[in-house]
């Protein structure tokens, strides 16, 4: 069984060290702010540490907190780009810190909290409250009159429809599309790409019985899809790769059609 002549796979090469003989010293410039002390204005603080192989900003920030400044505030939960907790501006780009590898960063990196959301402290922002508010305003749940029958077989659904719903449902509410959106920055009630995408998820779902008119009232407004001016920072920054531009265009067309139909029936 010891057949040594087996072709080695690509990953068998020794790429673990990423050649750390000359480990870089990274400068991490972090915005510090504590809302409990409003008299101290937000400022940037520099931290230095040595880069390690496979290092992500998750590792960096925890190291800084444990070894240099225990008061440093930031949010991580899953550290695997699943939960959406760690959205921040990394050198200006809204992205997830947990999946940002330091090897892709320059020697000096600036970390800022996501704009739009309420600041809790340093890099920690209240995305949860913002998204909950939008979910409530857009009534993001299945609206149906049917009552669940525990003894019945499940209602059938075409798998393609299920996949389409899932494609929109994949949003992890990290807020990168919101923080990067110019409109969201100046219009407090704008639901942003994430909000529109969330509504699209329910529009695609045959289980939801809301009418076109109801959706029109919900998102066919300046706080909804018509608030979007098409800058597409959302589409460029979505860390899970949801085709936000397609979703926005889909809802926009759908709303135009509803308005047209509504006009005809008048």
């Amino acid at each position: 069984m010891e057949n040594r002549a087996v072709l080695l796979p690509q990953t068998n090469r020794d790429d673990w060290g990423e050649n750390m003989m000359h480990a870089r010293t990274l400068t991490i410039r972090i915005m510090r702010y504590n809302p409990a002390e409003p008299e101290t204005k937000p400022y940037l603080q520099d931290f230095q540490l040595t880069e390690e192989p496979g290092m992500t900003l998750f590792v960096v920030l925890n190291k800084l907190r444990e070894e240099q400044d225990p008061t440093l505030r930031f949010d991580f939960v899953c550290r695997a780009a699943i939960c959406g907790s760690c959205g921040m501006l990394v050198n200006g780009k809204p992205t997830l810190a947990c999946k940002t590898l330091t090897k892709d960063l320059p020697e000096t990196t600036t970390l800022l909290p996501l704009p739009v959301f309420k600041l809790i402290g340093d890099l920690s922002v209240d995305t949860g409250v913002w998204f909950r508010d939008v979910s409530l305003r857009t009534e993001s749940w299945i609206h149906t009159d049917t009552v669940f029958d525990p003894d019945a077989e499940e209602e059938r659904m075409d798998n393609d429809v299920a996949q389409k719903i899932y494609e929109a449902e994949r949003c992890i509410e990290c807020g990168c599309c919101i923080g990067g959106c110019a409109t969201a920055n100046i219009k407090p009630n704008f639901i942003g790409a994430a909000g529109v995408n969330r509504v699209a998820r329910f529009m695609l779902d045959p289980r939801d019985q809301r009418t076109d008119r109801e959706y029109l009232e919900l998102v066919g407004t300046d706080d909804g899809v018509f608030g979007c001016v098409g800058l597409m920072a959302c589409d460029d920054n979505c860390p899970v790769g949801i085709p936000l531009r397609d979703q926005l265009a889909y809802v926009r067309r759908k709303m135009a059609q509803s308005a047209w139909n509504l006009g005809k029936t008048k």
């Binding site: 501006l89 050198n91 200006g92 110019a182 800058l231 920072a233």
Partner: peptide, 17 residues
């Protein structure tokens, strides 16, 4: 806010607006 934002996020489509 807009100018500061555009400067912050280095995003060409935002500048173009």
């Amino acid at each position: 806010i807009l100018w500061r934002h555009a400067k912050l996020i280095h995003h060409s489509d935002t500048w173009s607006w």
